[in-house]
């Protein structure tokens, strides 16, 4: 597989079209938060809304945004993974995702932890695209920390 095909793995292209979790919905949850993130380099933007129950477990994730296939697919994959995940588990997963993104193509992703998000390992070879992949994750993190009932 050449570098371009590693970047645009089929699972990424599929998610970019399916956009799981989009559009935004109003979560019926104990606590909810929202974050709007913007990539000033290309103008891409995303708004992520999360709902958490009393045990700090994600009950819903939804988003709306505009951007390249990497940023849209990343938001879609995250929306599939997050419901049912606890706050601490999300932070562990986020760390693993971030570490993979900083690896410049050298990481062997742990698919147990990263599930479909492991497909983004090819992005780490393209420093200009790392921010695209991170955008939804950063938004979800900010939404979680800002969540209130």
């Amino acid at each position: 597989m050449n570098e371009l095909d590693q970047l645009y793995q089929q699972v990424i292209l599929d998610h970019a079209k399916r956009r799981v979790g989009s559009p935004l919905v109003e979560p019926a949850a104990a606590a909810q938060g929202e974050s709007h993130q913007h990539n000033p380099i290309c103008g891409d933007q995303i708004r992520v809304r999360v709902g958490l129950d009393e045990q700090n477990v994600f009950t819903s994730v939804s988003w709306e945004g505009e951007g390249c296939s990497i940023s849209m697919a990343s938001a879609s994959v995250l929306s599939e993974m997050l419901p049912g995940m606890g706050r601490d588990q999300f932070l562990t997963t986020l760390d693993a995702f971030r570490e993979m993104m900083r690896s410049k193509g050298t990481a062997t992703p742990d698919e147990e932890v990263l599930e479909d998000a492991a497909a983004f390992v090819g992005v780490s070879k393209f420093p200009a695209r790392v921010k695209c992949a991170m955008l939804a994750w950063v938004a979800a993190e900010a939404a979680m920390f800002g969540a209130s009932s």
Binding site: L4, L7, G67, C68, I70, M72, F126, R129, C132
Partner: peptide
């Protein structure tokens, strides 16, 4: 196709 993806493809 988003311009970023177009640019990436052309770069390859």
């Amino acid at each position: 196709v988003h311009p970023h993806d177009v640019g990436q493809y052309l770069d390859s």
